[in-house]
């Protein structure tokens, strides 16, 4: 922290304000303010939903379990997002990727957006950007390339939700089926993705093995929940299965690589 403050002081405040630096204090402040706003929005919605949940009869202990299991579930994907920030920081400095991946963006979007803008500017992505115009072009492309969601939601969400309520109340059974069809359709794309590298031989099957481990763990934990009536475990079965499968992928990958090397 002290190291960063020193770097910030040296690079930001010690120079005239217009001197370009991808890691300037001012850029950290801009990113920080927007990120604080997003945390405030999350706290606001959390407090509102919490109050409402209690009003409609949810047990506080149950809600607490939702909070802890959601937090636990988030750790691994959040660290993977952090890895995306680190990857982009070599090219764009820290504040811009920090902002982009904390608000609206996604790993699958930010990287191609930055690359597309860099290509248009003829800028190399292997070195830190030193041209402010290239930096501003990249920032604009990354921001505007994913903006539609933020415009559509305030305009159409009420209508979409109205439609959902209409479907559910018109035919309850069909409403439930269409909801699970939405989930299953989304999940099917990612389950298919797991098989994308099987043409590479045994190493390409590793994600499939890990998926099998994850399925198995979930089934075991689910059985434990039911058999021994461990209600709290229901909330944690998914994050536990996910984290344990990720851990299992380390020895599995090593074994497969050893087998590949031996053959």
């Amino acid at each position: 922290m002290v190291y960063y403050l020193k770097i910030c002081l040296k690079k930001g405040w010690g120079y005239p304000l217009h001197k370009f630096d991808v890691n300037s204090v001012v850029m950290y402040m801009v990113a920080g303010v927007i990120i604080l706003f997003v945390i405030a929005q999350s706290v606001f919605f959390l407090a509102r939903a919490w109050r409402r949940a209690k009003e409609i009869g949810f047990d506080v202990a149950k809600l607490r379990r939702v909070v802890t299991s959601s937090a636990l579930f988030t750790i691994a994907p959040a660290v993977s997002i952090l890895l995306g920030v680190i990857a982009l920081s070599k090219f764009l400095g820290l504040p811009l990727p920090w902002l982009r991946l904390s608000v609206v963006g996604a790993l699958t979007y930010e990287m191609p957006a930055a690359l597309s803008a860099a290509k248009a500017m003829g800028t190399s992505v292997t070195q830190t950007v030193i041209d402010p115009q290239a930096y501003s072009t990249i920032a604009w492309v990354m921001t505007l390339g994913i903006i539609p969601g933020l415009i559509i939601i305030p305009i159409w969400l009420k209508k979409i939700q109205g439609g959902v309520i209409k479907i559910v109340s018109k035919d309850k059974r069909w409403g439930e089926i269409i909801m699970s069809a939405l989930f299953l359709g989304m999940i099917s794309a990612f389950l298919g993705l797991v098989f994308a590298n099987v043409h590479e031989g045994l190493i390409g099957w590793v994600p499939v093995f890990i998926m099998a481990v994850s399925v198995l763990l979930m089934l075991v934990l689910g059985t434990l929940c039911k058999k021994y009536k461990i209600a709290w475990l229901e909330n944690y079965a998914l994050p536990f299965s996910m984290l344990l499968s990720m851990a299992a992928s380390i020895p599995v990958t090593n074994w497969v690589q050893l087998l590949g090397g031996a053959s």
């Binding site: 989930f183 990612f190 994600p207 998926m211 763990l217 990720m246 992928s249």
Partner: peptide
């Protein structure tokens, strides 16, 4: 390898719950 395998780790567990129901 752990970070490379987030998708199968997550969607395997989530998938089995939802698929078994429907």
């Amino acid at each position: 390898p752990a970070f490379d395998n987030i998708v199968p780790s997550l969607f395997g567990a989530l998938g089995v719950v939802l698929i078994s129901k429907n």
